[in-house]
């Protein structure tokens, strides 16, 4: 790790001003991606602004037809939350399978969404559920938020404070983990709300998380795994590596989408 300065703000405002003050500084949430990256000397922030002691950033509540989750809420807390398990079980299930138990005790939803790793799980949920990313400055619709691998709509000095998930009528996430890293090689989140069906795919594309229009169209006609038979997504911009070439990932998208639909139907 390269040397850095450490700051521990107590409020979001203090965090924001620390970010402004220190050029090339970074926010530290759970650190489960950032710290390994820094250890390998692949990132060299001048300062880390630790959000761990900022009041009011963690917590889960049901607000009307939405589940609102604080940015510093740990994956394990989302997974075990009675509120999430009752009203948005697909999200609890997703959170319960991010990384491993120790990672889930540190990693946070805000950190995951801010980083927008192309193999992260939460972006699929946020996009498929049509979540709203709430920052210290504004509210961003998920459709506008994800802008490609490791790229988001967040501006300089902008800090995610909460994420609001509308409750779907049916939803599920199916992940095919990379055999080595266990990150999503393909993860498909399917959400049905009224007649609207949204399908978001993580892990597969060089452009990061995306909505799979052909799958959405097929499921819109009939929300059934059979509807996806023979339906595929264009895999030309998919990731190809030693674990899976683009066509294999393309196949997995349809297979995982089918499994997600079955899961959403309780099958």
């Amino acid at each position: 790790m390269y040397a850095f300065a450490y700051h521990r703000p107590g409020t979001v405002r203090q965090a924001q001003s620390a970010l402004h003050k220190h050029e090339d500084s970074k926010l530290l949430a759970g650190g489960q991606t950032l710290i390994p990256t820094m250890k390998q000397r692949l990132a060299s922030p001048s300062a880390l602004i630790d959000l761990g002691h900022v009041a009011g950033l963690a917590g889960i509540e049901k607000k009307g037809r939405n589940i609102v989750i604080g940015a510093m809420t740990r994956h394990a807390d989302v997974a075990s939350s009675a509120v999430v398990q009752e009203h948005l079980p697909a999200l609890a299930d997703l959170a319960a399978h991010i990384g491993d138990p120790a990672v889930r005790h540190r990693g946070t939803i805000g950190g995951s969404l801010a980083n927008n790793d192309p193999s992260a799980d939460y972006p699929a949920a946020a996009l498929a559920l049509g979540a709203t990313i709430i920052t210290n400055k504004r509210k961003i619709a998920a459709d506008d938020y994800f802008q490609g691998m490791f790229t988001t709509a967040l501006e300089e000095g902008e800090i995610i404070t909460k994420v609001s998930f509308p409750m779907p009528s049916k939803a599920a996430y199916a992940k095919f983990p990379n055999p080595a890293s266990r990150y999503a090689m393909v993860g498909v989140f399917v959400a049905k709300k009224g007649s609207d069906v949204r399908v978001a795919v993580t892990g597969a594309s060089n452009d990061g998380v995306f909505r799979a229009a052909p799958l959405e169209a097929a499921l819109h006609t009939k929300f059934n795994a059979k509807s996806l038979e023979g339906v595929s997504v264009d895999h030309t911009s998919f990731i190809s590596d030693i674990h899976g070439s683009a066509d294999y990932r393309g196949n997995l998208v349809t297979v995982m989408a089918k499994r997600a639909v079955l899961k959403a139907q309780g099958k």
Binding site: Y6, G31, Q32, I35, K39, A102, V103, H105, R106
Partner: peptide
Amino acid sequence: VKSCTTLAVA
């Protein structure tokens, strides 16, 4: 937690 992925100061 994984102590190799956690800063002592945190």
